[in-house]
């Protein structure tokens, strides 16, 4: 108790603050709750479109992506999360070109810094809004982002 307060004044003043507190909590008690019920609201739950869930490589309807296997994303990554495997092949007109074999992405060590997405000159990779990424085995966190038999979109 403060020295300047009298015994009774301190007591009553203190009781008053306690009552203000009780009033506040009671007001919250009857306020409707804003809790979201997660698994039930899956249908209407929409993440913000900038949310970084996991790295994906968008493919178009012809099973084509934009990755030219340049490896810039791999170099930009601070954690060694991305592993781009490429091979050289010869086109019909005899030029040597590089193409993507597999684009491995380890969700487990990704820290969502977005450097890979920014580094990519072709916009081949982006983050999607999936957030239910839990798996039972760590090896399942290593994902192959390019689909089977997918090709790079040829420039016209």
């Amino acid at each position: 108790m403060n020295e300047e307060k009298t015994y009774l004044g301190g007591l009553l003043g203190g009781l008053k603050t306690l009552c203000v507190g009780l009033k506040t909590t009671m007001r919250e008690f009857v306020t409707p709750k804003i809790t979201e019920q997660y698994p039930e609201n899956r249908d209407e739950l929409k993440m913000f479109d900038r949310f970084r869930g996991s790295l994906v490589m968008p493919h178009n309807e012809n099973n084509e992506h934009r990755c030219v296997a340049c490896g810039l994303c791999q170099m930009a990554c601070p954690n060694g999360t991305i592993n781009v495997k490429s091979e050289m092949y010869e086109t019909e007109d005899g030029k040597k070109k590089k193409r993507l074999v597999s684009y491995e992405y380890n969700l487990g060590s990704c820290m969502f810094c977005q450097l890979c997405v920014r580094a990519c000159p072709h916009g081949a990779i982006t983050f999607d809004q999936s957030f239910e990424n839990a798996v039972f085995d760590r090896s399942k966190l290593i994902k192959k982002l390019n689909r089977e038999d997918s090709k790079v979109i040829e420039k016209k």
Partner: peptide, 13 residues
């Protein structure tokens, strides 16, 4: 339940 309602929550459900 009471505690949850005081705390803007729903409590066990």
């Amino acid at each position: 339940k009471v505690c949850a309602f005081f705390q803007c929550r729903i409590g066990p459900n």
